[in-house]
């Protein structure tokens, strides 16, 4: 967590000219992005702008049609890359939580440690319990996801990523499926992570949260970057007409 300054030269995540075609439609049209170690980058844009698809290209849950993704300077969009290793190092939190309903909360969080990191079961469960404590769910380890509220389930999903000690975590609209009163408990956990120096890429329209936590804001439209810059600058003095329109619409 303190190694922010010494390896600054290499960005944590770098995307170069990412294109994505779904059948005939050209969803991503050459997107570049650089996210430094410990930085929080936000992706914004209306639905269909390609923000989720771009996010998913970063850990190759979606395969980019063209272009490269680099993690700590290493190209991962390569046939020889062990994609499972890459994904183990980059956490992902989904809009719909996507917890495993047939497992307890603890088993959900320990699964990757046991089968990907090959940790002994007892050690994995300890680590999982620690991660759950960090998101404030130490009392719910033996429950099943269905017994938890949406906000609690999303925090379990964050713990599931966190337990793997990832280099970065990708958040795909983590609060969009939540009831309004549960949004804050999730954003609170995310802000703490940001303060602790976790590299994060967040698709979110929670302006208040982004203003406090995000260093960089990237505005996408029709598969292209229309504007990017420090969060406050983009929010307060948007240069592009499309950004202004969008910000007006979501406020």
């Amino acid at each position: 967590m303190s190694a922010v300054s010494d390896t600054k030269a290499e960005p944590m995540i770098e995307a170069r000219g990412i294109h994505k075609y779904f059948g005939g439609s050209h969803v991503l049209r050459g997107i570049d992005a650089t996210i430094a170690r410990g930085e929080v980058a936000a992706l914004m844009g209306s639905s269909g702008s390609g923000k989720s698809t771009f996010l998913r290209c970063l850990n190759r849950i979606e395969e980019p049609s063209q272009g490269d993704v680099l993690i700590e300077g290493t190209v991962i969009t390569d046939l020889r890359t062990d994609v499972n290793r890459v994904r183990a190092d980059i956490g992902m939190v989904f809009q719909e939580y996507n917890l495993f309903p047939h497992m307890t909360v603890l088993e959900n969080v320990a699964l990757g440690l046991i089968y990907v990191r090959r940790r002994p079961r007892s050690e994995a469960q300890e680590t999982a319990a620690d991660a759950l404590k960090r998101v404030g769910l130490a009392d719910h380890v033996t429950k099943h996801p269905q017994q938890l509220s949406g906000g609690q389930q999303q925090r379990v999903a964050i713990a599931r990523s966190l337990a793997m000690r990832p280099k970065a975590i990708l958040f795909d609209e983590p609060t969009s499926a939540l009831d309004p009163e549960m949004v804050n408990e999730v954003l609170e956990v995310m802000r703490t992570l940001a303060e602790e120096g976790m590299t994060m890429v967040v698709v979110s329209h929670e302006i208040g949260f982004l203003r406090k936590a995000a260093d960089q804001l990237i505005m996408l439209d029709a598969g292209q970057v229309v504007e990017r810059g420090p969060t406050a600058r983009v929010l307060d003095e948007p240069e592009h007409e499309r950004t202004r329109e969008f910000l007006r619409a979501i406020r």
Partner: peptide
């Protein structure tokens, strides 16, 4: 499909995702 995506995003292989996440739910 999200169950598989979620399993793969942790780094599980396709076979592991099938065995550990999909099949236990399918069988029920």
């Amino acid at each position: 499909r999200n169950q598989v995506l979620s399993a793969r995003s942790i780094g599980l292989t396709a076979w592991q995702a099938m065995r550990l996440v999909v099949l236990p739910q399918s069988v029920r």
